[in-house]
């Protein structure tokens, strides 16, 4: 179920805040608090490392405690993170694809997306979806879509990366309200969301674009990517209109949401056999 991206799985305990929560939880368990069988098994096997993922699941609320809507949101996020992680693992791992100046930034992005996959899988446990089979040419499995040279041409690779990141930002944003009341999950999602935005800014700037989205401009991406920018020109925030002389800045200042349906429509061509 868990996907190997040729990298050791990252330890949640590397985050001090999470580590603190884990150790607190461990102390509670040591003191006799009830826990789930996976955590107990992990703890009984003795190693903190082995127990980490199970404990994380325990702290964040195992599938059985998470309501269906939260599981749906997290699996939706996991689908997008799988897409991004595999994309960057392949891109960074393809000799001769990326020029020197892009290699560091894309490798940093790869590292984060792989970590996001591992984190979401650890929270979802057995309810995590399996990784779909992707077609990064956007050919729905045919391998000959509009981005046919995605792993042979750095420009195409960066263009697809921009579409993924800008879409990812909007996707997380659109789901935040569905996570209200589940503070650990919501906080984690928000903290991933802003990292996706950092990625988006960097990829856009490496492509010679502004780091932010003006109006609904696709930022020199082909027509196949316009769906990622639909609605970005919105000028009405929280129903308060913004009669603003600087309409361009107004649209740049607020990233807009996408619904789950809109996002799935955007990524459908990248998934073999559709969704």
């Amino acid at each position: 179920m868990h996907t190997d991206y040729n990298e050791p799985k990252r330890l949640l305990a590397a985050d001090p805040a999470i580590a603190e929560r884990l150790s607190t939880r461990q102390a509670e368990i040591d003191a006799g608090a009830s826990t789930n069988s996976a955590t107990r098994a992990g703890l009984m096997m003795g190693g903190a490392v082995l127990a980490t993922a199970a404990l994380a699941t325990d702290v964040f609320g195992q599938s059985s405690n998470l309501p269906g809507i939260v599981v749906d949101v997290l699996n939706f996020a996991l689908t997008l993170e799988h897409l991004e992680a595999e994309f960057y693992v392949r891109g960074v791992g393809t000799a001769g694809l990326l020029p020197e100046e892009m290699r560091g930034p894309f490798d940093q992005i790869r590292k984060h997306e792989v970590a996001h996959v591992a984190f979401l899988q650890s929270v979802l446990g057995s309810r995590a979806i399996t990784k779909p089979t992707f077609d990064f040419t956007a050919g729905a499995g045919g391998g000959n879509g509009p981005f046919a040279d995605v792993f042979r041409n750095a420009r195409t690779f960066a263009a697809v990366a921009q579409a993924f990141e800008d879409t990812g930002v909007r996707a997380y944003k659109g789901q935040a309200a569905n996570l209200m009341g589940h503070d650990d999950v919501l906080r984690a999602a928000l903290r991933i969301h802003s990292v996706e935005a950092r990625h988006a800014s960097q990829v856009r700037r490496m492509r010679g674009q502004k780091g932010w989205i003006t109006q609904s401009e696709p930022g020199n991406l082909p027509a196949a990517a316009t769906g990622s920018y639909k609605g970005e020109s919105n000028k009405f925030q929280f129903i308060l209109g913004q009669p603003d002389s600087n309409a361009q800045a107004q649209t740049e200042a607020f990233d807009e949401t996408l619904t789950k349906g809109q996002v799935l429509e955007i990524v459908r061509p990248f998934i073999a056999g559709g969704m």
Binding site: H193, S194, V195, A197, G211, W212, A253, F254
Partner: peptide, 11 residues
Amino acid sequence: GKIVSVEARHA
């Protein structure tokens, strides 16, 4: 959320 991602783009 609409604001924070733009702050992250700036950062």
